[in-house]
Nucleic acid binder design. Structure first.
Lengths: 195, 195
DNA sequence: GTCTATATGCTGATAGAC
DNA sequence: GTCTATCAGCATATAGAC
């Protein structure tokens, strides 16, 4: 059995990404130095470049991974047939998934302007794919006569903004449980699409 | 008549703030240097310190002024008596006001984490006053039996997130006019509160 | 795989000439 | 009111020892 004595490549790499997520979310990409990320991990700054070619790529990888994981999680979900039930399912999934990883969500929304143009295009395409998942639910419900949505694209953007907004104020152990929050938001979402 | 020949104190000051708004909105507070702001204005970096004691105060002043102007504008509005009409009025005011100054709105939402703690508290108090304006409309409508809102605070946050979200996708001269967007969003807001 | 040392350059802010 | 020059510090990234 080969044992990589003293080798931490499979440990330090994830630690670097975790530290970067925490620090980027708290202080912003531009305000966080590679030195600070290294200090959080417990290595020197130079060692970071074993795990990422540069700071920009580190940010891009975090955002891309976040969105790809989100899309995979959504695609794996068992979806109901009924449009109304599917919309409810989406709302509850969205809130639960986003409350579970607030730091990655925050970065994915706040650091878009710090992406290099090529990276920005890729990330935007992934985000659009997620938005389209909701939009197709609205389209089906509209066709079935269950929803009343004058503009599907606007309704999509409005609902996602509303649902993601939970992340800006929700506090663990606060006045309301996640379950209760999801109940209330689903109620408002249903009303918003005229169902 | 005293003429301040060569004096630009009443011109350069506003130019500095305008340049800071544009650059902070586009690249983020932490990513913009005082030198770059100065270059945008057409002066040297040292001259900026005639108009602001430091970079942090410049950011704080921009955010405070934005929120104070928003609050003043809202307080000056003629409000209808009927709760439903008042909610519609708030929705249309919010969208119109925010679409009119997207850069200041962006900064006020994105740069909170770059405020010094004392400044943060002041800005948060101003924001809360604006949120409370909506919350009191919801309270009145709930009492009058016009709305069906299980949690007023949540509904407030949900509606503001939905309405402000317009700023993230709206493009001047795009597919829809501001008027049409406001119509559609008001429709969704009304549905969300069960009216 | 991690370290120290270092290059190259930009940062916020100040001093003093004009 | 604006300029130039400058301080002290920190940035990203790389080179080479161990």
């Amino acid at each position: 059995m080969a044992r990589k004595t003293g080798s931490h490549s499979n440990i330090t790499g994830p630690l670097v990404r975790q530290a970067a997520v925490r620090l980027f979310a708290r202080h912003g990409y531009a305000a966080v130095s590679m030195r600070r990320i290294a200090a959080e991990v417990g290595v020197q700054a130079g060692a970071l470049y074993l795990y990422t070619p540069d700071k920009q790529t580190l940010l891009f990888d975090l955002m891309r991974e976040h969105l790809e994981t989100l899309l995979q999680a959504w695609e794996r979900e068992q979806k109901p047939d009924d449009p109304l039930a599917r919309l409810e399912h989406f709302c509850r999934f969205h809130i639960a998934y986003h409350l579970e990883r607030p730091e990655s969500v925050f970065i994915a929304y706040m650091e878009l302007r710090n992406l290099a143009p090529d990276n920005f295009r890729i990330v935007e395409k992934l985000r659009r794919r997620y938005e389209d998942a909701l939009e197709s639910i609205l389209a089906d419900g509209q066709e079935a006569g269950v929803f009343n949505v004058p503009d599907r694209r606007l309704a999509t953007m409005a609902l996602i903004a509303m649902l993601t907004g939970v992340n800006t104020w929700y506090q663990e152990g606060g006045r309301l449980s996640r379950e209760r929050v999801a109940d209330i938001y689903w109620d408002m979402a249903r009303g918003a699409v005229g169902a």
